[in-house]
């Protein structure tokens, strides 16, 4: 399986993402600069964390108009897995590929630590390797992870099982309903604030994030298996 790691000016978790795919998942990965106009040949699209365009105006608001985003939209429409972490999540929200918006953490502080997450939905292409309600430990590092959506949107998210991860125990940023990660209705676009790509090796503090990438791979293999 071949992943594109999209790199915007100011992305800084692109190398972690690449490492997670290449060295831990042991699949193919390639960096794709934000002004690229093609994502042909890629089976999955990854939008890494960072501070694209310096977080100017609003997080993700300028990156959302980078030429590559048209291709990301196409990939999402085609049903390919599109996964945004942290700033990547913020870009997906600004692009309208996921509902809602992000604003400042309630505490106004940048938070950098491990948090406990609950897997709310394990019947997705991103979480099938987890158990339902499994509690996992994944690091967060953000100043604007306070997810907001109106009540109508929230009801829709809940009804469709689009809330994939919630914070377990302490909510670090004040997000609505403790939301840490959501997907689109179709189930192929996921955005989350915590960084599973930084939790793929027990040597570096934990490997709870690896199952997310393994889930994506499993789904891809199953859908591309040669049927006898």
């Amino acid at each position: 399986m071949k992943f594109a790691v999209i790199v915007f000016p100011g992305s800084n978790c692109d190398v972690d993402m690449y490492h997670a795919i290449k060295d831990e998942l042991k699949e193919e990965a390639e960096y794709v600069w934000h002004d690229s106009e093609s994502l042909e040949g890629f089976d999955g699209i990854l939008l890494p964390g960072g501070f694209s365009f310096g977080d100017y105006l609003r997080t993700g608001s300028i990156a959302r108009f980078s030429p590559v985003m048209k291709e990301v939209e196409k990939a999402a429409k085609a049903g390919k897995p599109v996964f945004g972490v942290c700033n990547g999540f913020q870009v997906l929200l600004e692009a309208g590929l996921l509902p809602g918006a992000m604003h400042r953490n309630e505490s106004l502080k940048f938070i950098c630590k491990n948090v406990s997450l609950k897997v709310e939905n394990n019947e997705t292409m991103f979480t099938s390797a987890y158990d339902k309600n499994e509690i996992i430990s994944i690091p967060v590092a953000h100043g604007e992870g306070n997810y907001y959506c109106d009540e109508e949107t929230l009801a829709r998210l809940e009804e469709n099982g689009q809330i994939v991860f919630t914070y377990h125990g302490e909510n670090p940023n004040g997000s609505v309903k403790d939301i840490a990660g959501i997907m689109n209705e179709k189930g192929n676009v996921l955005g989350m604030m915590p960084h599973p790509e930084r939790a793929v090796d027990p040597l570096l503090g934990g490997a709870d994030g690896l199952k997310l990438f393994k889930s994506i791979l499993k789904q891809w293999r199953e859908s591309h298996a040669v049927k006898a």
Partner: peptide, 8 residues
């Protein structure tokens, strides 16, 4: 489209 985010 850019200067404001209509969601918030």
């Amino acid at each position: 489209r850019l200067l404001s985010n209509p969601v918030i």
